[in-house]
Design a protein around this nucleic acid. Structure first.
Lengths: 229, 229
DNA sequence: CACAAATCGAGAGCAGTGCTCTTGTTTTGC
DNA sequence: GCAAAACAAGAGCACTGCTCTCGATTTGTG
């Protein structure tokens, strides 16, 4: 075995801490994540971990970015898997299903990303690019739908204040998007994550008996409301 | 001052613990809520608190029920405040605004109710009646809309599995509700709480510049989608 | 090559947490 | 009046995040 350089060793240890941190996260959730427990498993004393992550929050930040990117990969892969690129309804449903599948497979990670923020933790700007991949997937489909001129069904007139409120999104887009459509897609965004949070956090318990069927019904309805179907 | 009986004293202490617990909850959030800190402020030693609440989770349960009921009161008051009882769109918007106003005024309590569940905590059935008041407000409006025969716009055919999945809700209703309408209202439910969670947990930051305007636009659109407007 | 500087792991320690158990006191109900 | 129940206090356990110090090892440089 070749003697490892200090830089190699550092990278290796950092990765080891993060991967066992990730496993602990998946098992006990963000709130119960313990630096000391991670250190024990990696074979380090607790204080040594601080050489690699200045604080528990910094480790959490790394895990948040990792999770966002994992979810982003899942979403983009699912979208790319739809043969007919013009089937925007199919792509929307594929994206929705990808998010839900990932969330159900990684409930604690989903809670870390979209649940209550952990106390005292302020998400640094470094998480934004990875987080934006998810909403970006929706916005890309919205742009495509706008470009081909899909009608926006039942669209309500957009208030002047709302037009202004959408300025942040307008700026982030390369292709302009009419406000009526933007509102519809933002609603779809809220609906999908609302459904997931209500489902995963137990609020549909005993009310809805088949989450799969209901989610499919909801995303199907959303494709209609978005003018895709 | 009259000497208090043991029962009086017990009720008083229990209430004192819960109210300072509630204040701490509002200040530091559910995860950082500390029994010891509460005990210090009430003027008790930490172990004495266990005479009143067997565990931290039991205190949390009491606070959850308190919060649900407070939100339920706000919702029902808001609905009752709408003069024209036939203005279901107005009542829906009033309910939505009441939920959002309460959530923004009590973000930590909202996180406790609708955010990630606290680790190791399993909500006992005692929380269900209070929690059901919120969704019940929506379902009441749905029933009224169904009774007067509002059309459900753009309704998609409801799959057989979904019809079965809605059995849990159907049972809880006194007045029957067509499945198409039920789906629409469940979507509205997800959309409202999705919006709130995304807003309060920071996911709209820098994207949507005026949360008030956007929420108004969303609820307005929902009234149209529900066939109320 | 030598040596100072930077890096690292280990250990002790601090302040905090939820929770349990024991001990002595006070109030209750028979 | 007295045994029983309820109660507050305190000590203690195992755990947490985090800081500091102390040697050992690896680095880059004169």
């Amino acid at each position: 075995m070749p003697p490892k350089s200090r830089a190699e060793n550092r990278a290796e240890q950092t990765r080891a801490i993060q991967v066992t941190g990730r496993r602990h996260l998946a098992e006990v959730g963000p709130a119960a994540l313990s630096l000391r427990a991670i250190a024990r498993e990696v074979g380090l004393v607790s204080s040594a971990v601080y050489r690699y992550f200045p604080s528990r929050d910094d480790l959490l930040t790394a895990l948040i970015i990792e999770a966002y990117d994992e979810l982003g990969d899942a979403v983009e892969t699912a979208d790319a898997g739809v043969r007919d690129r013009d089937d925007l309804a199919g792509r929307f449903i594929a994206v929705g299903n990808a998010i839900r599948d990932w969330a159900r497979a990684n409930p604690h990670e989903y809670a870390l990303l979209y649940g209550s923020p952990v106390p005292g933790y302020a998400a640094p700007d470094t998480t934004i690019p990875s987080a934006a991949r998810i909403s970006g997937a929706f916005l890309t489909l919205a742009q495509l739908s706008g470009q081909r001129g899909d009608a926006v069904p039942q669209a309500r007139p957009v208030s002047a204040q709302e037009r202004q409120a959408l300025g942040g999104i307008r700026q982030a887009l390369d292709v302009p998007l009419d406000d009526e459509r933007t509102v519809r897609w933002l609603i779809a965004w809220s609906t999908v994550f609302g459904h997931l949070s209500l489902e995963l956090f137990g609020h549909m318990y005993r009310g809805i008996l088949d989450y799969d069927a209901h989610f499919a019904q909801v995303t199907g309805q959303l494709t209609a409301d978005l003018g895709l179907a």
